[in-house]
Amino acid sequence: MALNLTVKVHPVVLFQIVDAYERRNADSHRVIGTLLGTQDKGVVEVTNCFCVPHKEHADQVEAELNYAMDVYELNRRVNASENIVGWWATGNEVTNHSSVIHEYYSRECREPVHVTLDTGLGGARMGLRAYVCVALGVPRGKQGCMFTPVDVGLTHYEPEVVGLQLCQKTMGAGGRARQVQPLADLAQVAEAAARLSALLEQVQAYVEDVLAERAAPNDAVGRQLLELVTALPDLAADSFADAFNSGVKDLLMVVTLAQLIKTQLQLNEKLTLLTSQ
């Protein structure tokens, strides 16, 4: 049953793992931690994680399990929906100590998953893999386990997309990092509209090339375009323009009110500071 699991990892988890790897002790070659999220209908969604201090020796593993449970309980106070779903480790392979660590997490949750992230870029990229532990052995005999790969991919919430796009803009020419300020609300709307317009032009050019027999048709693309067109509401041009203008007016009103409240709070803070002096 565990082999049917699919693991979906959010970008914030990858950032936290990389940050823990960059902050590791000088004598640590591998970093491990706990994965938090939800599991429903064969899909494990990893939404958060934290690092667990540990030391690996030739014949044993030392992990601060009390620290791990304290951090987990504190996280439960902030987000009660996040439960332990497994553990993560840096690197691109399963080591001899992985079964010992996995045994601990098997007591904390049902069917824990093990995620590895190649922070050392051994394969020229940051490889992401997920495993489950399948029990091996004969009845009433010596038991063992084998780490079996399962499907793993990335998923995201809509606000995370904005953060990822902002992070992408920090990469300048030649791979140099640069500082980027978040865009204002209206600027984000304008940028999103420009990207949408470019995508629509690309789709229109593809359809025209197919109709003119300049490009080979793709059945999968055609079905997706049909689903996209049928999903749109059947509105006349005038009705759509009125609805769009109404939405823009609502957005402008919210932005104006937010700016007024911000200005009021700043004035109140300065008046309070002057009064206290």
Score class of each variant (00 low, 15 high):
residue 199 L to C: 15
residue 171 M to Y: 08
residue 171 M to D: 01
residue 194 A to R: 12
residue 166 L to K: 08
residue 181 Q to R: 10
residue 172 G to M: 04
residue 202 Q to V: 03
residue 182 P to H: 01
residue 190 A to T: 11
residue 171 M to N: 06
residue 202 Q to M: 07
residue 164 L to D: 00
residue 164 L to C: 11
residue 170 T to N: 02
residue 174 G to H: 03
residue 161 V to F: 09
residue 172 G to H: 02
residue 167 C to K: 13
residue 182 P to Y: 01
residue 174 G to C: 04
residue 188 Q to W: 06
residue 181 Q to N: 09
residue 176 R to M: 10
residue 173 A to K: 15
residue 190 A to M: 11
residue 165 Q to S: 07
residue 203 V to R: 08
residue 202 Q to H: 12
residue 181 Q to G: 04
residue 167 C to E: 00
residue 177 A to P: 06
residue 197 S to L: 04
residue 164 L to M: 14
residue 162 V to H: 06
residue 200 L to K: 04
residue 172 G to A: 04
residue 198 A to M: 14
residue 178 R to D: 01
residue 178 R to M: 12
residue 203 V to D: 10
residue 182 P to W: 01
residue 158 E to S: 13
residue 185 D to G: 08
residue 196 L to G: 03
residue 178 R to Y: 02
residue 194 A to M: 08
residue 163 G to V: 05
residue 176 R to Y: 03
residue 189 V to A: 14
residue 161 V to A: 05
residue 191 E to D: 12
residue 192 A to Y: 06
residue 191 E to A: 15
residue 177 A to H: 04
residue 189 V to Y: 07
residue 187 A to I: 01
residue 157 Y to D: 00
residue 179 Q to S: 13
residue 189 V to P: 06
residue 170 T to G: 01
residue 180 V to C: 08
residue 166 L to N: 10
residue 192 A to T: 10
residue 199 L to K: 15
residue 203 V to M: 11
residue 181 Q to S: 11
residue 190 A to Y: 02
residue 168 Q to W: 07
residue 186 L to A: 13
residue 196 L to D: 02
residue 193 A to R: 14
residue 183 L to A: 15
